[in-house]
């Protein structure tokens, strides 16, 4: 399954990667090289084979509903690129 330039752009938008035109072109070539390798498994007839969704064969792992300490606000915000009044500041939304 070869990937088109338009698909590369669509996938980049889904992944929120603002690619330059030359990156799009490069990636189209690279991804198609990789997809050739990957497509080898398309040929396998795997009807009736259950998918393995989880590596550990365990179920029902939960934690008790018990409060644990929170981060101090200064720690929560320590890495914030911008902050104001104890909140994470972001530019305007939408547009």
């Amino acid at each position: 399954m070869a990937i088109s330039e338009e698909q590369v752009r669509h996938v980049a938008t889904l992944a929120r990667l603002g690619l330059r035109d030359e990156q799009v072109a490069e990636l189209q070539v690279e991804l198609n090289d990789i997809l050739v390798q990957i497509d080898r498994i398309q040929a396998l007839d795997l009807t009736g084979v259950e998918p393995t969704t989880h590596a550990a064969a365990i179920t029902n792992v939960t934690r008790p509903d018990v409060v644990r300490p929170c981060l101090p606000r200064s720690e929560a915000l320590r890495n914030a690129p911008e902050q104001q009044d104890g909140a994470f500041l972001i530019p305007k939304f939408g547009g």
């Binding site: 992944a15 929120r16 990667l17 603002g18 690619l19 330059r20 990156q23 890495n79 914030a80 690129p81 911008e82 994470f88 972001i90 530019p91 305007k92 939304f93 939408g94 547009g95």
Partner: peptide, 22 residues
């Protein structure tokens, strides 16, 4: 948004996502 590289002067959130990540 919460940590890590943020692109300079993003005009809106979408612009911030696209450029910070790229």
């Amino acid at each position: 948004i919460r940590y890590g590289h943020r692109a300079e002067g993003a005009e809106d959130v979408m612009d911030l996502y696209l450029r910070s990540r790229a």
